[in-house]
Design a protein around this nucleic acid. Sequence first.
DNA 1: GTAGATTCTAGAGTCGGCTCTAAGTCAAAC
DNA 2: GTTTGACTTAGAGCCGACTCTAGAATCTAC
Lengths: 141, 141
Amino acid sequence: MSIGQVAERTGLSVHTLRFYEREGLLAQPVRRGSAGHRVYSEDDVDWLGVCIRLRASGMPLTDIRRYTELVRAGQGNEAERLAVLREHRERVLAQMHELDECLKLITHKVALYEGRLGLRDDVVECAQPAFNGASRGRAAP
Amino acid sequence: MSIGQVAERTGLSVHTLRFYEREGLLAQPVRRGSAGHRVYSEDDVDWLGVCIRLRASGMPLTDIRRYTELVRAGQGNEAERLAVLREHRERVLAQMHELDECLKLITHKVALYEGRLGLRDDVVECAQPAFNGASRGRAAP
DNA sequence: GTAGATTCTAGAGTCGGCTCTAAGTCAAAC
DNA sequence: GTTTGACTTAGAGCCGACTCTAGAATCTAC
């Protein structure tokens, strides 16, 4: 598979594919064909899929590289790999929780504006108490 | 409230607080006391709380500014505000879905390594089929 | 009143993650 | 045989979001 085809399939640009390779994100160096052109295997693409997921969940490139290096190093470091994955899972869970909070806030505001657009117009934009607990009444509609 | 106190309460640095103000993220310009020092009201802090949540859910500063400007402009643009919020809510939902997928992958791998660390050692690191549907058997343990 | 912490402004620097450019190689189509 | 287009490298550029610096002014405690 050429770099162009892989770009098509993964949604990454060819620039990004080369960049990821330079950054050491591929489990093994991509094979080269005839004129030094990259030839990707299905496994390469699958691994890229994993990288994409890890990126999408906020793992920095350096961490992905570290994990990749462990995998590349072969058997014997499973405990380390597990630690990396567990740590990241915690971050993902935290992130989901955070997103959930955001969603609540946004949904609250959406409801507020939806209501307002039907009924009244004297309510002032407000904020949720986020840091103290000292509700001062006037801020929450 | 001084900028230092607000930094303490919000978790933002004083640098970031000044930066956010320059970027027009505050609903109204922060009041100034005696020597030109910023004096934050509870409402300012509450609004910052909203900004922090929006940021945490991936809204870019430019979008937050845009929303802030709508709020600052006062009544009459509720429909626009609602549109901004709804659009962002869609993005948050998409993001949550994506995170969920990532979580599945990670959890799968964690289980795999947990199992392996107890039992065997000849399984090779693998990737989830992510783009095609052509399972080639050898990639999935 | 003086030391040390906090604040001010304007502007420069950093970092992560791409994204693009330039100059060149190569294969296939016409 | 030349043009077109996909590929190569090394390296520069860009963008968002901070983060820090310098130099001056001002508060707080002793």
